[in-house]
Design a binder for these strands. Structure first.
Length: 576
RNA sequence: CGGGGCGUGGCACAGCUGGCUAGCGCGCAUGGUUUGGGACCAUGAGGUCGCCGGUUCGAAUCCGGCCGCCCCGACCA
């Protein structure tokens, strides 16, 4: 492509709306333009980039035996009512009616559609397993779209759905996708970390998220560099910490009331009682599906509501208001405690139960209890891991320390089990002619988010640094002075020659000053730059620069092709 | 949905407590000089000041409503 004929509207200034590197650069390099919040046009170069990623995804999905198809974006809402997700995903779905006022949604995902298809088409175990995938637009009415295409309302996703006859088969399907994902992200130049995840609204038994470590990520993960344990924050397991060292015999201690006027928060109470937050037992009153429940957590910890939900087996979970707290505990908000608490189920985090002694609310205004001993002064109905993991926590697998970091979720694999196949009666006849329910899995990759992640990870102060594998073009060919005829003839020759050799070339043939072309080339970030300028041309030399490290070599015209293939090889090797 | 901020040529911004033909830089067009890191000179095009209403002799500026955009939070496959 000749730059003079192309549409690459680069910007010298940073648009005010962009906050993070990838968003700024995608706008500045002329990859995308915004139509409205969370809605973007992919301009020609941006679209080439997306298609490169799609091609890798396609290759690896095909290699893993998945079958590509395309499903409608516009979907009758009945299917969503059938699965029960019309309510669950209610506000997130874009809804609209047709001319007959029949309700439709713009598909945020396609479990319902594909399961409906499988239910209609698959009859026999002989047709299983099957894995269908598509690369298509998804619509989600995000509460807060942000960071350009990182969290958009309309975006491209690769979604795959596996159907198996047996659990063992489903596990194999899952494993094949897990491996395909590992390869895909790697080939895109991303170090995506697979982390254990909660299945959330998707349902199912287990899942992994693929996270690209990045400070601008919207998700948090816990990782152990020692044993490799990794999980997202919702899922990350915690172990009871060693109880604080205590001297002497405490068994004789009895809870004693102390006045703590107006001291409600953990910080206030800890400071007032001259103890550490970890010496406090925080008591939170939740309403689980409308039923009040007391939850105990150490003062310096936070409740992980996903874990709590799973332990309680409830759908809806929220903190109770002051009236409920008063009616359940007899005391005002801020002074709840487990001692003497009746008529309400009590669940405790394991770290609370490993405390020797602690301070907690007395269920009485302006009063706390000190010297409370878990297990002696109160006994919870259930003790479980209920807290949010923290940086430097003990690794639940190997006992070393974990680290907490931010990441961008670019992919997600779920074992769905039979949640959807049951709802849509997706059954088959087994070898014995007996009807069985199919076992499903689903697997998503945010293609456009992956694109943003690639740029988020690969850039410098001058612009994007495209990995060779996904670069919109491989070579930026710069003709520094198109008015010099022999040089331009040489550039034309190179342009054709490179393409004949399979390189995708962006030829800057514009009548612009050299500096202008260099800046644009750096901003756009194609992996290899070939510069033809008079100074070197007269010596029959050409300059070749790698965008990644700005390493420049001056080679004779005769060596050029060999140099390029060497660099290409190097750049591809970096991805392996 | 709560909190905060913003809306002025394509981009980035100035325009103070109400006052002149609404300005600067970048970009764009034309001509010329330039040609290895976003050149220079000259000329020029381009603006319903987000929209609607109000106050006023007079509103980009003050007031009200609406819309849009961004950030924080809640929320979220």
């Amino acid at each position: 492509m000749r730059v003079s004929k192309a549409f690459i509207p680069t910007l010298k200034e940073v648009p005010a709306e962009a906050e993070i590197a990838s968003h700024k650069l995608m706008l500045r390099a002329g990859l995308i333009r915004k139509l409205a919040s969370g809605l973007y046009t992919y301009l020609p170069v941006g679209w080439r980039f997306i298609r490169k990623i799609e091609a890798i995804v396609r290759e690896e999905m095909d290699r893993a035996g998945a079958l590509e198809l395309v499903m409608p974006q516009l979907q009758p809402i009945e299917l969503w009512e059938q699965s029960g997700r019309a309510k669950i995903m209610g506000r997130e779905m874009m809804r609209l009616n047709d001319r007959n006022e029949r309700p439709f949604v713009l598909g945020p995902t396609h479990e319902e559609i594909i399961t409906n298809l499988a239910a209609n088409e698959i009859r026999s175990y002989k047709q299983l397993p099957k894995n269908y995938y598509q690369i298509a637009t998804k619509f989600r009415d995000e509460i807060r779209p942000r960071f350009g295409v990182m969290r958009a309302r309309e975006f491209i996703m690769k979604d795959a759905y596996s159907f198996d006859a047996t659990d063992a088969g489903a596990n194999l399907s899952y494993k094949a996708m897990y491996e395909a994902y590992t390869r895909i992200f790697h080939r895109c130049g991303l170090d995506a970390v697979p982390v254990e995840a909660d299945t959330g609204a998707m349902g199912g038994s287990s899942s992994h998220e693929f996270m690209v470590p990045a400070s601008v990520g919207e998700d948090q993960m816990v990782r152990c560099s020692d044993c490799g344990y990794s999980a997202n924050l919702e899922k990350a397991e915690c172990v009871a910490e060693n109880p604080s060292e205590l001297t002497g015999d405490r068994t004789a201690l009895q809870p004693r009331e102390v006045l703590t006027p107006g001291q409600k928060t953990i910080e206030q109470v800890a400071a007032f009682l001259k103890v550490q937050p970890c010496d406090l037992i925080k008591t939170l009153i939740y309403e689980a599906d409308g039923k009040a429940t007391a939850v105990l957590i150490r003062g310096d910890h936070e409740v992980n509501e996903v874990k709590l939900k799973n332990i309680l087996g409830c759908e809806e979970l929220s903190l109770a208001n002051a009236e409920v707290i008063e009616s359940v505990t007899g005391g005002p908000l801020g002074f709840s405690g487990p001692v003497g608490l009746k008529n309400v189920p009590l669940v405790a985090d394991i770290s609370v139960m490993s405390m020797k002694v602690g301070a907690t609310g007395a269920n009485k205004a302006d009063t706390h209890l000190m010297d409370v001993q878990p297990g002696k002064d109160f006994t919870p109905l259930k003790t479980a891991d209920l807290r949010v993991a923290k940086d430097q926590d003990i690794c639940p697998r190997c006992g070393k320390k974990v680290t907490l970091s931010w990441g961008i979720e670019v992919g997600h694999c779920f074992k769905l089990g039979t949640k959807y196949s049951q709802a849509f009666n997706a059954t088959y006849l087994d070898e014995n002619g007996k009807e069985q329910i199919m076992i499903m899995g689903c697997y998503g990759i945010g293609v456009t988010r992956t694109a943003a992640s690639v740029i988020e990870v690969h850039n410098d102060k001058d612009g994007i640094i495209f990995p060779y594998s996904v670069a919109p073009y491989h070579i930026a060919l710069l003709n520094l002075n198109p008015s010099v005829t022999p040089m331009t003839e040489y550039c034309e020759k190179l342009y054709n020659e490179f393409q004949a050799l399979g390189y995708e070339v962006l030829y800057d043939d514009r009548d612009e000053r050299p500096g202008f072309k260099f800046k644009d080339a750096d901003l756009l970030g194609l992996p290899i730059r070939v510069t033809v300028g008079e100074r070197n041309f007269n010596q029959e030399m050409v300059e070749v620069v790698r965008r990644s490290n700005k390493e420049s070599v001056l080679v004779s015209q005769g060596e050029l092709i060999a140099t390029l293939s060497k660099i290409k090889e190097d750049l591809l090797k970096e991805l392996c």
